[in-house]
Design a protein around this nucleic acid. Sequence first.
DNA 1: CTGTTAGCGCGTTCAA
DNA 2: TTGAACGCGCTAACAG
Lengths: 359, 359
Amino acid sequence: MTITLKDIAKHVGLSVTTVSRALAGYDDVAKGTRQRVRAAAKEMGYYPNITARHLQKQRTDTLAFVVPTPGPRFSDPFFSELLAGIGNEAGRHHFDLLVSTQSPDSEDERETYRRIVHGRRADGVLVVRTRQNDERIRFLSEQSFPFVAFGRSDLGSSFPYVDEDSYAGTQLITQHMADLGHRRIGLVSAPAGLMFCQLRVAGYRDTLRANGLEPDQALIIGGDLTQRGGFQAAQTLLALDPRPTAIIACNDLMALGAMSAAQKLGLVIGQDLSVGGFDDIPLAEHAHPPLTTVRQPIYEIGQRITRMLVQLIQGQLAPETRQDASRSSREGETAAETQVILTPQLIIRDSSGPPPDGG
Amino acid sequence: MTITLKDIAKHVGLSVTTVSRALAGYDDVAKGTRQRVRAAAKEMGYYPNITARHLQKQRTDTLAFVVPTPGPRFSDPFFSELLAGIGNEAGRHHFDLLVSTQSPDSEDERETYRRIVHGRRADGVLVVRTRQNDERIRFLSEQSFPFVAFGRSDLGSSFPYVDEDSYAGTQLITQHMADLGHRRIGLVSAPAGLMFCQLRVAGYRDTLRANGLEPDQALIIGGDLTQRGGFQAAQTLLALDPRPTAIIACNDLMALGAMSAAQKLGLVIGQDLSVGGFDDIPLAEHAHPPLTTVRQPIYEIGQRITRMLVQLIQGQLAPETRQDASRSSREGETAAETQVILTPQLIIRDSSGPPPDGG
DNA sequence: CTGTTAGCGCGTTCAA
DNA sequence: TTGAACGCGCTAACAG
């Protein structure tokens, strides 16, 4: 049997209202009464019914996180890290976290968002891995539902987000390979629909050109961000003649897969072949050899978008900047707080070195 | 503006009650009426308020999963896999999933469980990584709150669970090392409070003895289930003289850390040192070299405990078997469905081989 | 200071 | 076949 306010009221001989206010700590209730009520509540083991409270307060103190996983069986450390950051930060602000995994752009994903928004299942949602023409963002914007994204969008609307500078990040690692003397540098790309994919490929291409190297389409292979995908893409790249002396992958997981593929061929990573990644997941440091990569603070980004979302819900975040450019100069400062771009950092480890025979 | 039943009622000129029943598909409403109502609902973009429904129905269609993470920054593929299985299965049954991460045995963890149970925040919870004298299980049992565990317990109470046979699993891998000719086999253990820890250590010890090897306390090092922990434990083990020729870790993550430590010393895994793990996380297969380990189907276990929990909530699962042993024979069949022990499987890969100099 | 009334949005009696 | 009344548990507005 669960104890309700009514039970307490009956027990202490007061009205439900008074009990409610006594427990809420309102000061329009007699001190003695309050103490009596509180004692009774404690003794009877009272806990407020959270659902009833949500209904009455018209908010759920809940955030939703719909993880865009390609297959049912995902096990991407990237999402783990992000989830850890999100979960802990949500807890700090006394928000519950609703987690769901859905295939990107699937009907199930759309339905999940509709349910959350229209059914008022949560007070806000976290959108990650933004896509070109992202229907999630369009939908949430249309519905004026609170959300914060990890990643930018190509839609016109303006919304709060945190993103890392993918272009600059890929520049860093590509330049690193070029500086080491590599001239045939392969790229394991990501699904083209992802916003960061374009930027990373562009960063790679532009940096090659800046170093007098002409991008070779054969050296760019699509990947699906999984270890297996990196493995397969690397196999394709390493079958080329002449084969690349360096491979850059659009995330660490694929980079690790690429290393396996190379090692299977008997190549020594860092000598026969250099490999670079992106993300700096915890695994990267402990890989063999440790992976040279571009670091983005995933856990902290998870925390940050969560904090921003909570503030947005509580009205503490500057309202979203409009497309209206004329106001942008005056709103420069608030805009800086709601739209953050982080500069990634190159982490050089042992998986990269000079090419085997000087080039 | 959100559309409610009241809005539809006003629009079609009927009572809220009728609208509610029309949408629910009751057959005591005129066919024409039903169609009219449905059309209006669709046109107006009606979605039921989920919170209101929960309150009325006295259930939340929500499961809670409190992940026991030692630190805030966890990134354990084990939990990712489990979460994937749980999340997908929950979705299949139209249950939402509430995820929270809390430090094992902390006050925050206790408070989280109290909130879920007393506040009726969810209809059931999933308990994983069971511990000795597990207060979560005691609490949930006392409160008769629906739960299913991944792992057994040393408390008297009986409850539904799925577990893998840790003892048999460790026997397998220890015997494998012994068969290869290893005589000094180190063990990187797990936090002693975990139920599976005792079993794995026992499986290791007993198998050594069965092979005429006396367990050496110096060869058993505590680990915290993280990669870093495995790294450090392996460093300690490898500093011994003579050092072990094989190391078994209580989970794959530590095994990978141990491989790194060995490789840092210039040892070749599978030749100079054999390493074995436990779990068979996706990473294990793609490690370098691929890790010999004991496989337990984590994803499927996540699915399975979730399915059991849903059935338990819906009253489709046999009631928990009592301690009352006299009935056990008659209830053998139902008990078999609510208390499952899976037999793990040895996966031999390249990280294990004969000891360097024949022993 | 306390109680009455009212309502969050929905589903379920029970009459009509 | 439909509607009025009621309750889920809680909080807020208003009287007294």
